[in-house]
């Protein structure tokens, strides 16, 4: 699949870089898939905080398994109502629900801190004990894949079967 790099001018006069995996390039400006190349930030939110000691709850799932995207990026990605986003970094990938966030600049995505965000964070601490939870380069694309729930997220790790709760 060929990759095409284009730059789109977005609001506030700033530019964000996108990788376009396109069909019909050179004729009309239409794409089957656009991958957004962005910087991933993770951090606290109220909803994440309010449910962080109830990690098996739907509230935690709803609060934490989403990816906030700037409005222009969201629109550029052409995410439809039933679509999620796949976030991929050199450390892993994860499917998240997508939502617009007018506080985010183009080219920056935000995932509430938690196991979904950490699926794509690297383990290198740069010699100071702390991973780079903010600032990982990521690619974002729409997907029809479902978001894993917290059990599914850990299913391939230890002996989840028969979990006692």
């Amino acid at each position: 699949m060929p990759q095409y790099y284009i730059k789109l001018t977005v609001p506030q006069g700033k530019t964000a870089q996108y990788i376009a995996l396109g069909r019909g390039w050179g004729k009309e400006f239409e794409f089957m898939v656009i991958i957004l190349k962005a910087i991933m930030i993770s951090g606290r939110t109220l909803g994440q905080g309010a449910s962080l000691e109830a990690k098996m709850s739907p509230e935690f799932f709803n609060a934490t398994s989403s990816c906030a995207i700037s409005e222009s990026d969201y629109n550029a990605l052409g995410i439809s109502g039933d679509e999620n986003v796949l976030v991929r970094t050199e450390f892993g990938e994860v499917v998240l629900s997508a939502r617009k966030d007018d506080g985010l600049p183009p080219g920056v995505i935000f995932i509430p801190m938690g196991p979904w965000a950490n699926a794509v964070v690297g383990e290198n601490t740069g010699g100071c004990g702390c991973p780079l939870f903010k600032g990982t380069e990521a690619e974002v694309e729409p997907t029809k894949t479902q978001v894993k729930d917290v059990c599914e997220l850990f299913a391939d790790l230890k002996r989840l079967a028969g979990e006692g709760s």
């Binding site: 962080l52 990690k55 450390f91 892993g92 801190m113 938690g114 196991p115 950490n118 699926a119 794509v120 964070v121 690297g122 383990e123 991973p131 850990f154 790790l157 230890k158």
Partner: peptide, 17 residues
């Protein structure tokens, strides 16, 4: 604490071992 949630995935994989 809940490192399985709050640590990077590769680190959690090490915990699981």
């Amino acid at each position: 604490a809940d490192p399985a949630s709050n640590f990077p995935r590769k680190t959690v994989e090490a915990m699981a071992e």
